[in-house]
C-alpha cells in the first residue's frame, strides 16, 4: 500500500509528527500556514532560526519544525531573536509565540523591537487566555469574560495588539484568524518578504480553556465567531466606532496593500 505523506511533513523533525496540542486547538492551522508560506516562497527552512517563548504557541516550532530553534525563557523570545538577527543578519529570524508571552511578560521587548524596526517576523498566536497553565486571564482577554483568575468576569480592557506595535513603529502589521488560513498564509509570505519589523496577530481558538470558560463553545463555534466578527480594513473605515465594538479588523493594517 502506498504511504500517504502530508505535503508539509518534509519540514517536520522525523519522529515529531504527533502534536501535543489539545483537541480543537488552532495551532495546527497556524503551523500549517507558516510552513505553506515558506514552501510557497521556495525558502530553505535551514535558512531560518525560529525563536519561541513559553506557553502553548512556543510549541509550534519547538520541536516540530526541522530548523534551528531557540526555545527561550518566558516572554523573552524577541530579545533573544534580537541577538540572533544582529549577529547573523543574513538569516530569517521568525518568532512564534503566544499573547501572554509576547505582550504581557514580554511586552517591553516587543515594542522596542518594533521601535528599532528590527528585521524579524513576529507571529503572535492570540488565544485570548493563558492556555498552558489552565485558563487564566490575559491582557488580550475581552472585558467581562470569566477565567480561572477572574471568577466574576474580567474587569480590564484588552490590548489591541496590532495598534500597540503600530504605535511602537512596526512597518508591517497584519491580523488574521484561524478561520482565514489562506489569507493567513499569504500574510505570512508578505511578512517574511518584508524588510523590517513584521508583526502578525493570529486569533486562534482554545476550546479547552477559553471556549469553555467564556462559553464561546467548541472549536467550530470559535471559528464561526472569528468569521462573523472579522471586519476587513476597508469595511472598518466606513463603520462607526460603535459598530466596531466586539469586532476586530483583519487584513494588512500597516504595510503594502492587502493582496488577499
Amino acid at each position: 500500500m502506498n504511504q500517504i505523506h502530508h505535503p508539509m511533513a518534509r519540514y517536520l523533525r522525523p519522529g515529531k509528527e504527533v502534536t501535543t496540542s489539545c483537541p480543537g486547538c488552532g495551532e495546527g492551522i497556524i503551523a500549517h500556514s507558516v510552513l505553506r508560506a515558506i514552501d510557497a516562497l521556495g525558502m530553505d527552512i535551514d535558512g531560518f532560526t525560529f525563536v519561541c517563548g513559553i506557553g502553548c504557541a512556543g510549541w509550534i516550532p519547538s520541536p516540530y519544525f526541522a530548523a534551528d530553534t531557540l526555545h527561550t525563557t518566558h516572554g523573552r523570545p524577541v530579545a533573544f531573536a534580537t541577538g540572533v538577527k544582529l549577529a547573523m543578519p543574513d538569516r530569517q529570524v521568525m518568532v512564534i509565540s503566544g499573547d501572554g508571552d509576547l505582550t504581557a511578560i514580554g511586552g517591553n521587548h516587543l515594542i522596542h523591537a518594533a521601535r528599532r524596526n528590527l528585521d524579524i517576523t513576529v507571529l503572535c498566536v492570540n488565544n485570548r487566555i493563558y492556555g498552558m497553565t489552565g485558563g487564566q486571564v490575559a491582557p488580550t482577554t475581552p472585558a467581562s469574560i470569566r477565567t480561572t483568575t477572574t471568577p466574576s468576569g474580567n474587569e480590564e480592557p484588552a490590548f489591541d495588539l496590532c495598534r500597540l506595535v503600530e504605535g511602537a513603529g512596526a512597518t508591517f502589521v497584519a491580523r488574521w484568524t484561524t478561520a482565514h488560513p489562506r489569507q493567513l498564509t499569504r500574510a505570512i509570505s508578505q511578512a517574511l518578504q518584508h524588510r523590517g519589523f513584521a508583526f502578525l496577530e493570529v486569533m486562534s481558538q482554545c476550546p479547552v480553556h477559553y471556549g469553555k470558560l467564556s462559553r464561546e463553545g467548541r472549536a467550530t463555534d470559535s471559528l464561526d465567531f472569528f468569521r462573523n466578527q472579522a471586519v476587513r480594513r476597508n469595511q472598518a473605515a466606513r463603520m462607526q466606532p460603535g459598530e466596531l465594538a466586539e469586532r476586530f479588523v483583519v487584513g494588512t493594517l500597516v504595510g503594502e496593500e492587502d493582496i488577499a
Partner: peptide, 8 residues
C-alpha cells in the same frame, strides 16, 4: 537574552 542569542 540577546547575548545568548548572539552566542548561538
Amino acid at each position: 537574552a540577546s547575548v545568548i542569542g548572539a552566542s548561538w
